[in-house]
Design a protein around this nucleic acid. Structure first.
Length: 576
RNA sequence: GCACCCAUAGUAAAAUGGAUAUUACGUCGGUUUCCGGAGCCGAAGGUCCAGGUUCGAUUCCUGGUGGGUGUACCA
């Protein structure tokens, strides 16, 4: 079952086109597309091929649509197409086709109809990438969760996806941290819980050095010593990274995110000087005001904005590191593509390094996948009352605690452990879903009440729909048994089957433009379609084939919801 | 200055150039002898402005307005 319904209809439609009297007048390579119907009152699928052809053939679109409908052979698959409006061709699947599709999906629990890519690509994904020595704050949520979701989806369709956490472990902040370590460190605090202590000294030094030129200079000197290989400073640096990674890993564990590699900025240090030399030798880079730069005179976005790859004092910048990183990913990791899930403000930077990569003759498919900001209710950057950035760990804690309160109120008789487990699934799931359910570029307002609402397009609603699919089998007293008779009688059943079949069309669509919200919206629609089925079609009081069919619908809905939420990185629970 | 991103009901969001612009929250009304009502059914309310391309524009192009961001030695 590698073809989607849309693809099968498209094949039949193109066969019909070849049989029309204008078949030879069509533009070369013309291939008609089939879309899911915008509005179900018109049918299940639609094509606007007649209107496109009408323009090119200079003929009446309805006339062309009628001709296509006349040669269209729907077989047992599709009813006779209908012509509507200015020239839409509308298709409705036969009950037989839906039943066959339904059986095929039941036989394919691993993929649920989603086709595998013909030629798997090696794709390196770059996301999350926090600075070490600073805890992750809410700003890191989006990239981390969106990146992880893209990894899951891309793996699911068969690609070889490598996740790489390009942590910021080599920057100017280390001058401040090392100075703070030497002068401000509370030894007992660093042993008890290193992350808050590191944050404390970083914040303290950072605040002071802003209007203390002497301190700023002292920090720079510590940085120079570190870069020069000073043993004491290197030891502090290593220790800092070690404890930071442990702290970061705790959060990733909680989010159930794994990285194949943690190749931070420092990993590329030795490759920076040769890279700059190579770019100079190739004539791509040139000296300007003492710095080594690459210019882009032909691109209006960057015409007056050079990329600096070496400072006049000899130091390297993150553009240099990112170029070395591209090298490594192509040469060592054998990447066909690299996806960068990074905040929108970095657009220019990635335009520049991607262009430099192209000039070097590299042809990997480099994708910048930007996202917008998270704002507080006042539409400004989210901050705590004291003005600090909000830490990610605190967000997760609060989400889980709020979820616990709801579960506890709703189901006080659940065991304490059950309530805690459920709260973890719902709390973390809600934070993730709030991110993934909207277009990644729009700035979004962080609001607990919206995120954890029990109704509407939220994680609790979707998880609840899944719980309902399970509740049936609890009531039944046994798990689903495959192989039962299938017969679709009610419209609500057919609507649900069609929706379930469209999972296979949704995953590739969501991935094609890096939009997890397409999948999230699909799951929400699936849940509402299921709830409508639930209202219209009693299950356990029926008998025979109708009962078996409806049990199978509950089972398959549960499978698609669990799989779909899983692709978003969200777990399900059996009860809530 | 230059560049990039964004603009859709009271609020928050959807919509490969397609039909009557789709949801949610909130508001108002209906619905429960039934498998989890955390549901379902219904009502009111909207594409920043001006041009252009098109049979057709929320979508593409041009110019405004408003907001955000970036822009030679941070990342």
């Amino acid at each position: 079952m590698s073809e989607t319904i849309a693809q099968q209809l498209a094949s039949r439609l193109n066969a019909a086109l070849a049989k029309t009297d204008f078949a030879h007048d069509m533009p070369e390579g013309f291939s008609a597309q089939i879309d899911q119907a915008q509005n179900r009152q018109f049918g299940d699928y639609q094509s606007n091929a007649a209107m496109i052809l009408a323009k090119q053939l200079k003929r009446n679109p309805r006339e062309i649509a009628t001709a296509i409908a006349g040669t269209f052979d729907g077989g047992e698959f599709s009813e006779k197409p209908e012509i509507a409006g200015p020239g839409f061709i509308n298709f409705r699947l036969t009950t037989t086709a839906l039943e066959e599709r339904f059986k095929a999906l039941l036989d394919d629990p691993a993929l649920l109809g989603v086709a595998q890519v013909e030629v798997p690509q090696t794709i390196v994904t770059d996301f999350s990438a926090p600075n070490v020595a600073k805890p992750m704050h809410v700003g890191h949520i989006r990239g981390t969760i969106i990146g992880d979701c893209l990894v899951r989806m891309s793996r699911f369709i068969g690609n070889n996806v490598v996740s790489d956490n390009h942590i910021g472990d080599w920057g100017t902040q280390f001058g401040m941290i090392i100075w703070g370590w030497k002068n401000l460190l509370d030894k007992s605090a660093i042993e008890a819980d290193p992350i808050p202590e590191l944050l404390r000294i970083y914040r303290e030094v950072n605040a002071k050095q802003k209007d203390d030129a002497e301190l700023a200079e002292a920090c720079r000197e510590e940085l120079v010593k570190l870069q020069g290989g000073d043993e004491e400073n290197l030891a502090i640096w290593e220790k800092t990274i070690e404890v930071s990674k442990i702290g970061l890993q705790k959060i990733y564990d909680r989010l159930e995110i794994e990285f194949d590699y943690w190749l931070g900025e420092s990993f590329y240090n030795s490759q920076l000087a040769p890279l700059v030399d190579e770019l100079m030798a190739a004539g791509i880079a040139e000296e300007s005001d003492g710095a080594i730069c690459v210019f882009f005179p032909d691109d209006e976005k960057m015409a007056d904005k050079p990329a600096i790859i070496r400072k006049s004092d000899g130091g390297f910048l993150y553009a240099t590191t990112d170029l070395a990183t591209i090298d490594y990913r192509i040469k060592q990791l054998k990447a066909d593509a690299a996806w960068y899930v990074v905040g929108a403000p970095q657009q220019l930077h990635f335009d520049q390094i991607f262009e430099i990569s192209r000039r070097r003759g590299q042809n990997a498919d480099l994708q910048f996948i930007p996202f917008g900001s998270i704002l507080g209710k006042d539409r400004k950057m989210l901050r705590t009352r004291s003005g600090d950035t909000v830490q990610l760990a605190d967000v997760l804690d609060e989400a889980v605690e709020r979820a616990y309160q709801i579960v506890d109120k709703k189901n006080p008789d659940f065991s304490e452990k059950e309530k805690r487990d459920i709260a973890e699934v719902i709390g973390i799931g809600s934070v993730k879903y709030a991110e993934l359910s909207q277009f990644r570029m729009t700035d979004y307002i962080f609001d607990w009440d919206t995120m954890l609402a029990l109704k509407g397009n939220t994680a609790p609603y979707l998880i609840n729909a899944y719980v309902r699919t399970r509740a049936i089998f609890r009531k039944l007293g046994s798990d689903f048994e495959p192989g039962g008779a299938i017969t679709l009688t009610a419209d609500a059943e057919k609507d649900l089957v069609l929706k379930l079949a469209q999972f296979s069309e949704t995953v590739p669509a969501a991935l094609s433009d890096f939009r997890p919200n397409t999948l999230a919206n699909y799951l929400y629609e699936l849940a509402t379609t299921y709830h409508k089925f639930w209202e219209a079609c009693p299950v356990l009081k029926e008998e025979g084939a109708v009962r078996e069919t409806r049990l199978a619908l509950c089972e398959l809905t549960g499978q698609v919801l669990r799989k779909g939420l899983g692709l978003l990185g969200i777990r399900t629970t059996e009860k809530m």
